[in-house]
Write a protein that binds this DNA or RNA. Structure first.
Length: 576
RNA sequence: CGGCUCGUAGCUCAGUUGGCAGAGCACGUGACUCUUAAUCAUGGGGUCGAGGGUUCGACCCCCUCCGAGCCGACCA
């Protein structure tokens, strides 16, 4: 075994692994382990007066998280899928005969924090009152050869928390093991999608899957990731949205379809944006955006109750209340509320002047819609903490939304804003094929002017709309953002298991050939490098006697069991 | 893309007008048959993110680079 580059603790664990094998114990057994209970069930169902039968013969498995060894008796804490429970080991119970190896050697010396074991025994309460399992027999299920971060806790205070965000995100397994609140946030993420899914299924809508690899990207304004299909010799894009495909299914006669869609946008990353993220898109025929607002309220309120048993959710310093009905403002009303200015009847040049007065950054290329959006973004969005619907957006920003039934220049669109961030976006969908084509053509003009995010004209989609799409309400709801709110998370990285990270710096690439070319064995070349001799020049300048000592010492200290080089060999390297 | 902060032992963090690299936990050895941040004794463990510069001497000062976090810009 090659121990070079390992820490002392890693070497000790590998030695323990070997010793287990020498004792005839397989540290990675193949057989099923007959777990019959979880830690939490024991804690929940323990009853001093009327002990359930099955707690007298429990079999559970998990990871050793702490150990307190007191000679011939010990306590440990076992962490399984549902929590932790204390284990009590006594030498003479583990080893009923003369041979005390299983306790003295295997348990005390060869097991470590982080190892996965299975135990059988019975539940009891210690003199200090803690519900525990008295272990009669234990089985090594997986030896851990990488030391765990040690997190301690007393009276609810966490000591030495594993908290460096970089390490946590790069090594999520460790994060999940030692930070229970991380695990719980992810469990809540799944509970959230389960709640949403059953809500939609109960209404009879069909969950579907549509292409992630798309020949044309559409349905949102964003830059895509681009890839290539070899057989078709064709450029494909990772979808930025699935809207255009779901609408084709509406045309096809499904009256309610939805998809939990992983979308990809090739843009900046921050604590609200990850390049891949999840949206739930829903399309329902014969409905409009007013109907959809009611559905969103009902759905999100139910999710909050399913997760927290309450419509109120603590989020940082705020308490968000999802109780229906939510406040509703048109975009014009919202701007009037937060700036005091009524822009509903302004001409473009008047609007431009108001924007300048408000110190909103605008430039000449912006149309009326963009300026309004800019004012809203600067003055209104961050003020909206409680869930609020903003309705009736300028037409320029919304090429897939139906024109407003009564106000010129607007579309039937709403967003829900919560905690100062958009959580969903919905329209009465545009189903007029002539209008839709014109809107796409306007987008093409924008693209020609250099707007990288303008939508592409999708003939296949237009063809579908031309067949005839029923009036339809559509919704996209950001699952990551909603999860952040529901789990009191400040960063999207806390609700995505494996957030995108820059590649870690490569471990220094050492080309041992510079030494092996001198006739040095590879293993010694690596040790020389580890010992700080990183170039031939350094080697040549070294004292041969000292170098020999270093190598032999290294061999001994790390128990490598190598044949030491002779002093002559070492001076031979230096003089070669 | 810009500003600020950070990178030292497995983990959390100290550190020094610039003078042999520290603590707690973890780990090794010994003691202890109801502990719980177990305790007591004792011992090991470091390319101080990488590279360059200044200096007799750099973890520390300067430059470049890499990675991370926060804020802002851009963007949904």
């Amino acid at each position: 075994m090659d121990y070079i580059g390992l820490s002392e603790q890693e070497i000790i664990r590998r030695e323990a692994l070997k010793e287990l094998q020498t004792l005839g114990i397989n540290p990675y057994p193949a057989a099923e382990y007959p777990v019959n209970i979880f830690s939490k069930d024991i804690l929940d169902r323990f009853d001093d007066n009327n002990m359930p039968e099955d707690l007298l013969n429990v079999c559970l498995a998990g990871r050793i998280m702490t150990r307190r060894i007191m000679g011939n008796a010990s306590f440990a804490e076992l962490q399984d899928n549902k929590g932790r429970i204390q284990l009590y080991f006594r030498r003479d119970d583990i080893c009923t005969g003369e041979d005390k190896t299983m306790y003295n050697t295997v348990f005390k010396r060869l097991l470590d924090i982080g190892d996965i074991i299975g135990v059988t025994g019975y539940a009891f309460r210690t003199q200090m009152g803690e519900i525990s399992v008295h272990v009669k027999e234990f089985t090594v299920l997986s030896k851990s050869i990488h030391p765990l971060p040690i997190v301690k806790e007393k009276d609810g205070v966490i000591y030495d928390a594993f908290s460096d965000p970089e390490q946590r995100y790069r090594n999520r397994s460790l994060d999940l093991i030692v930070n229970p609140q991380v695990k719980s946030a992810f469990i809540n993420r799944t509970r959230l999608t389960n709640s949403m899914r059953s809500f939609l299924n109960d209404k009879g809508y069909l969950e579907v899957e549509t292409p992630i690899l798309q020949p044309l990207y559409g349905g949102a304004a964003a830059r895509p990731f681009k890839t290539h299909h070899n057989t078709l010799n064709q450029t494909l894009y990772l979808r930025i949205a699935n809207e255009l495909y779901l609408k084709r299914l509406i045309v096809g006669g499904f009256d309610g379809v939805y998809e939990f869609a992983k979308d990809f946008r090739n843009e900046g990353m921050d604590r609200f944006h990850n390049p891949e993220f999840t949206q739930m898109e829903l399309y329902v025929a014969y409905k409009d955006y007013n109907w959809m607002m009611n559905l969103v309220e009902e759905m999100v309120e139910r999710i909050s109750i399913d997760l927290h048993g309450d419509t109120k959710v603590q989020l940082g310093e705020n308490v968000i209340d999802f109780k229906r009905p939510w406040k509703r403002y048109t975009m014009y009303e919202a701007i009037q509320k937060f700036t005091g200015i009524d822009i509903s009847n302004l001409s473009e040049s008047e609007l431009r002047q108001e924007a300048r007065n408000l110190k909103v950054e605008i430039d000449d290329s912006m149309g009326k819609g963009k300026i309004i959006d800019e004012i809203f973004g600067t003055y209104c969005e961050k003020e909206l903490i409680q869930p609020t619907f903003i309705t009736d957006y300028p037409i320029e920003m919304s090429p897939l939304a139906k024109k407003h039934r009564s106000v010129d220049g607007l579309v039937e669109r709403f967003e829900a804003i919560c905690n100062g961030k958009e959580i969903c976006n919905a329209y009465s969908e545009l189903n007029d094929p002539i209008d839709q084509r014109e809107r796409f053509e306007q987008q093409l003009l924008l693209a020609k002017r250099g707007d990288e995010e303008a939508m592409m004209l999708d003939e296949d989609f237009l063809k579908a709309i031309e067949i005839g799409m029923p009036p339809t309400a559509g919704l996209g709801i950001g699952i990551d953002r909603l999860t952040m709110i529901m789990t009191n998370s400040t960063s999207i990285q806390d609700v995505i298991f494996f957030p995108q990270m820059r590649p870690e710096k490569k471990a220094e690439t050492f080309d041992e050939s510079v030494f092996t070319e001198l006739g040095i064995e590879e293993v010694w070349a690596k040790i020389l490098f580890k010992a700080g001799y990183t170039s031939v020049k350094m080697l040549k300048e070294a004292n041969p006697g000292k170098l020999h000592q270093i190598l032999c010492g290294w061999n001994k200290k790390n128990k490598l069991g190598l044949q030491n080089p002779t002093p002559d060999q070492v001076s031979g390297w230096i003089n070669s």
